[in-house]
Design a protein around this nucleic acid. Structure first.
Lengths: 259, 259
DNA sequence: TTCAATTGTGTATAGTTTACACAATAATAG
DNA sequence: CTATTATTGTGTAAACTATACACAATTGAA
């Protein structure tokens, strides 16, 4: 098992790695998938290394798939983190101690605190379909609310901040939701997704008018039952139109958000 | 001399490097600084490597300074290029041949065709103040018009395409011009800068109205003389207000441009 | 002095964004 | 069964923003 890790570390690029900020949406809240390192209370973003024959993009997909079980996800590079010292909340020696607890083995020959530049990706995934799987270093993989994140290893809090910024900016020229919501959803649910990404309330009527004007939704002849009060209609994305909007770009007018 | 290069290559990160797309503006055209490799007709973007103690950002500044002589520039990371094979216009072996011509020495121990992930930055610089300086590999450093670029080494044509896209997007939420124009400039000059970045014509009156509304310009009581026809007024950026607009963001309405 | 090219300037129209309220519906509690 | 409560569905008017557009003034050159 340790041999497996060693082989992985030795067979992959040493100075570059990938970290993924995986966004999910559940119970009206935007959440992020974090990993807890074995035998510790230290949390980090899911990440991984790149094989020599693999593009960075493919590596990011692979890592994402390994942690969530999902194949089809929205994945996007947003920034590369290249500080010489990326130990922000915990010093290099504190981090090393955590690693020692985690690995219970002498891996000093692998130089695990060597400098690594990390390429940051963010992903949008369907919460319900995710089966969180820890990696070799970790024993727990679970969703965290964005407002309740712990202090993370390395510069991962910074990464999440920038991922959120990138996601918000994304909202200005691309539709979002296909990979974050279940197949069928209601207008209020979609609105709450946008609100939780933007961190502010939107007007119900104006939101509906705007989102419908992009012509990416199909209104279904069913309603969501079981909820108290009036039943909202169900919608789903028209995949083709959605893809077209993604590639051509759309001008979303969330101007109130300053970047 | 060769020893110097060898020392540089051996003392810097091996799997990660930086490439810079340096934009300048001259004669009503947006231009890019390219390097020609010694003894060849092969061109590339200026790039360089990262020292172990240096952040990626600092390395990018250093490289930029080395090639242009400039200290104060606008520099921004826009994408990291991580294809397993980044030899696009010229194959690895063709590129290797060029390198051999350039170096006239056996450097095979340095494994110069090993895989490298490149972090792409774009820079905006004041054309007139740049003193282009070739690096060790190259013997010529000059400006190229964007519409007349040659086939470049590696994936550099792709990089330039993405840099331009990033620059255009930038225009939507930040003012641009401080680092691209001389201290004093006319409204038509500023407009031509915007037009050359966006690749389309803008209305003179509407452009002026818009740019003035951002309250980042100071109108000077002088005019540019010597030009045929009516003399335009000179303006300059109010540095403080410009910086505020940069950090707070501005909503530039170039909606016609689809991304 | 005339000509040609370019600058400076304002307004009206179209289009977009925003603010806002009431009737309909569905589950729940009585 | 009925009343209550919370939430949904829906349209219009006002404010704001973007766009289209033309003529007089200025300058150097002919």
């Amino acid at each position: 098992m340790k041999q497996e890790l060693r082989a992985y570390l030795e067979s992959t690029l040493k100075e570059v790695a990938i970290d993924c900020t995986i966004f999910g949406f559940h119970a009206h809240e935007l959440k992020i998938l974090l990993l807890r390192w074995k035998g510790t209370n230290a949390w980090s973003l899911p990440g991984g290394r790149i094989f020599p024959e693999e593009s960075v993009q493919s590596a990011a997909y692979r890592i994402l798939q390994e942690r969530t079980g999902l194949k089809e996800v929205f994945l996007q590079q947003f920034h590369t983190f290249g500080d010489a010292d990326r130990y922000k909340n915990f010093s290099a020696s504190e981090t090393l101690k955590i690693l020692e607890k985690t690995l219970e083995e002498d891996l000093s020959d692998l130089d695990l605190t060597a400098r690594v530049v990390s390429i940051g990706y963010f992903a949008l995934v369907e919460f319900e379909q995710v089966v969180p799987v820890p990696d070799f270093y970790t024993e727990e993989c679970r969703w965290w609310e964005i407002s309740e994140l712990p202090l993370l290893l390395f510069d991962h809090n910074e990464m999440i901040g920038m991922a959120l910024k990138a996601l918000r900016r994304q909202l200005n020229y691309q539709p979002i939701g296909y990979n974050l919501l279940p197949e069928k959803f209601t207008m209020p649910e979609l609105q709450k997704l946008y609100e939780s990404i933007l961190g502010r309330q939107l007007d119900r009527r104006n939101f509906q008018k705007m989102i419908l004007s992009y012509d990416i939704l199909e209104k279904l002849p069913e309603k969501r039952r079981g909820t108290a009060n009036r039943s909202p209609f169900l919608y789903r994305f028209d995949k083709q139109k959605y893809e077209r909007a993604l590639s051509e770009g759309i001008f979303f007018p969330f101007q109130g958000e300053k970047f």
